[in-house]
Amino acid sequence: MSSATTTMGRSSPVSLPVIQDQPTDGNGSPGPGPGLPAAAPEPSAARLILTLGVAGFLSGLCLVLVYIATEPAIERNRIAAIEAAVFQVLPGAESFEVFEARNEEVIRHDAASGAMPSGPSVYAGFDADGRAVGFAIPGAGPGFQDTLEILIGWNAATRRVVGMAVLETRETPGLGDKIITDERFTSSLENLALEPPAILVEPGQRQADNEVDGISGATISAQAIVNIINDSVGAWDGRLPDQASLRASTSEQAEKQSETTSSSQDGNERRPAR
């Protein structure tokens, strides 16, 4: 045994961990090598439990402190990512509010209550005057490798898809991720009709408003996006509030309609001033 540990420091070429048999009793123990701390004869079970208990306690304490310290920043990042995606898919939007589906109806989520939306939710985007410019609808479906999660900008007034952002993807780098970078594909999602349902066509062959330019090398990923758009918008379309009359909760019209004006301020997430 001594050969293993004595050569450990300098002369063994790689210093791999030396697997030693754990002594289960005091006898037959290889004993500590020269560098090892002198081992007590046989520590009691209480000593072992105490060691692990203290280590676990200190570890837990440390993690709690770090979690408390980093949690606000992580939450900010998460909100910033959602905000960036909503503003990306809804051109002209200056602020947005969360709407949640409840009992076949889509209602404004009361952000002031502090509760998370209880059901599936969409984001309504408003321009500087508080008029609704469209809805950002989350959608998910099977991509080439894993579930694709996207956000779809849907203008319910013109009945057009006006933008798409990919939130989660594990598509093949260099091929499937062209759904983010291929400009011909993404630009055909900036004015896309869904009646009849959108279809994928050969790259550059887009003629009708419901056709999407495909991507050479990413056919499956592009088709997945088109499917998700058709399904997700179809699922929400009939339930969304009337976009023409929808106003941001901070604007005057909304305050007249709303019974509780107190909830208006916090419910509105403003785009940060540049």
């Binding site: 754990q22 002594p23 500590p32 090892l36 081992a39 007590a40 520590p43 000593r47 072992l48 060691t51 692990l52 280590a55 676990g56 570890s59 440390c62 993690l63 770090v66 979690y67 980093t70 920043a73 992580i74 990042n77």
Partner: peptide, 28 residues
Amino acid sequence: LIPRQVRITTFIIIIATFVTVADLVLAA
């Protein structure tokens, strides 16, 4: 202070703590 019998477990606790800290800090 670490008894040999539980050294690997203790290493893992220590390593896992540092990894979780790195994970949270990187996320932030």
